[in-house]
Each structure stands twice: as structure tokens, then as C-alpha cells.
Design a protein around this nucleic acid. Sequence first.
DNA 1: AATATATATCGCAAATATACGATAAAGCAT
DNA 2: ATGCTTTATCGTATATTTGCGATATATATT
Lengths: 111, 111
Amino acid sequence: MAIHKKEAFTQTEQDLANFAKALSHPARIAILKVLAQKNECICGEIVEILPLAQSTVSQHLKELKNADLIQGTVDGPRSCYCINWKAFEKFSTSFNALFTNLKIQQSKSCC
Amino acid sequence: MAIHKKEAFTQTEQDLANFAKALSHPARIAILKVLAQKNECICGEIVEILPLAQSTVSQHLKELKNADLIQGTVDGPRSCYCINWKAFEKFSTSFNALFTNLKIQQSKSCC
DNA sequence: AATATATATCGCAAATATACGATAAAGCAT
DNA sequence: ATGCTTTATCGTATATTTGCGATATATATT
């Protein structure tokens, strides 16, 4: 493509799209599930559970971290990850607001 | 990449990821907003509103259609699109369920 | 029939995403 | 110090996404 046009949309639309993009791979959804269920959220445990190579899991963790959905702290030679609940709450609320706003006009649908 | 590993995850995870992918571009979120607001949902109107070329908008519409989020009916030389509310309801409910399930264990978080 | 209008599709270019092995870096144990 | 474990990063290959202009197609209009 020539140039990305994403900046031409509203900030809300971009934020929602970025959140959706973070969730747009089953591995990342699976990671979030594991992180929510486990007390200990060591990277290695996730690698064992997922059917992916360690480097690939690490990459998905990085993307979730870039999206601000998870946090990581170093624990000796290990990395402990967990969900950033504050950001997660913000995003999921925005998403629900989108769903609700779309549905409000449902009766006007033409098809 | 060698091979896609998406099939290795649960159907629910794949479905959620596909839905999220459909929403992972601001243009597609903007399109859904327009479709929800307008009675008449002609392709050309969307093209005028969005800062994208006609062919690009058509492509985004195609992706939303592939994701089963919208429906399109031919109206003479025009195409009338609208949200597939039944599918949309299903997806947004699944998404909310994911959010809720993740949040249930929030107190156990380690970081 | 010729023309205009609206939309989908094709072809192309560039950017991103996905995946893995190999390697580097950082901390722990002996 | 040396080696072991764990994780991040690099390099690479391939697939997908994004975007646009050009073209094809299908329906109106004159």
C-alpha cells in the first residue's frame, strides 16, 4: 500500500481497532485466558500450554504488552506476566459502548 | 511463516479472533457506525464519508461480509449494505462473555 | 444502441503479521 | 568462573493486509 490511512479516523475508532487487533489472534486470546486463570503467570508455563514455539509466544506476549493489555515483571531469569486490568477494563468498556451504540439504532435497518 | 497454527486453538478462540480481526481496522468500525445510523446504506454514501478510495471501501465491505457481520443486497446498479444483527448479537455476546470470564478471576492476579 | 452511473474485481506495490530456529542476555547453581 | 535455565531478540521465509488505479460488469437513462 502507499501510506497508512488509519490516522484519518477518529481516535476512538483507532483505539478500538488497536484493541481488536490485539485480540485478533487465537493465541493471544488463549494467553489472556491463561493469565486470568493462573496465579503464577510465568512465560514458560504459557509456552508449554500453547502449541507454538517459545519465540513465537514471546512475540505474542510482546504484542499484548505493546497494546497495554498485559504487564511483565522480571523474576530472576523468568518473566512474570499478568493482565493490566485497568487498561483491560477501559478497553472492554469502550467495546461494550460501541456494541450498545450500534444496537440502539437496530430498528432502522433497511435490509 | 511456515504454516498457520490457528487451527490448533479452540473453535471459540478462533471465532472470537476472527470477529476481532473484522473490527481491527478503524475503517471497518467507521463503516459499522455508518450502517447503524443510516436507513439507506448505499455503498456510495460510505465511500463519500470515508477517506478512502472506492475500491478500498469495497474491499473492507467484502471483509465485513466474509466475517458475516454485514449483508449486501443488490438494488439496481447500487449495493445496499446493512448490519447482520443476528450474527452481530452472537459475536458481541461471545465477546462480553470472554470479558466477563477473564474478569471473574481478577483478584488472583499476581502482579 | 450508446452513454452514464455504481460497484466489484484484478493487478500491483508496500507494509505487517505469523512462525520458527539460532543466538544473545541475564540470572542462578555448582 | 563455568555451566544451566529462562526469555528476548535477530534473521529469515512466507502469508496476509492495506491501498489504489484500472478495468469489468451490471443496471439505468436517453
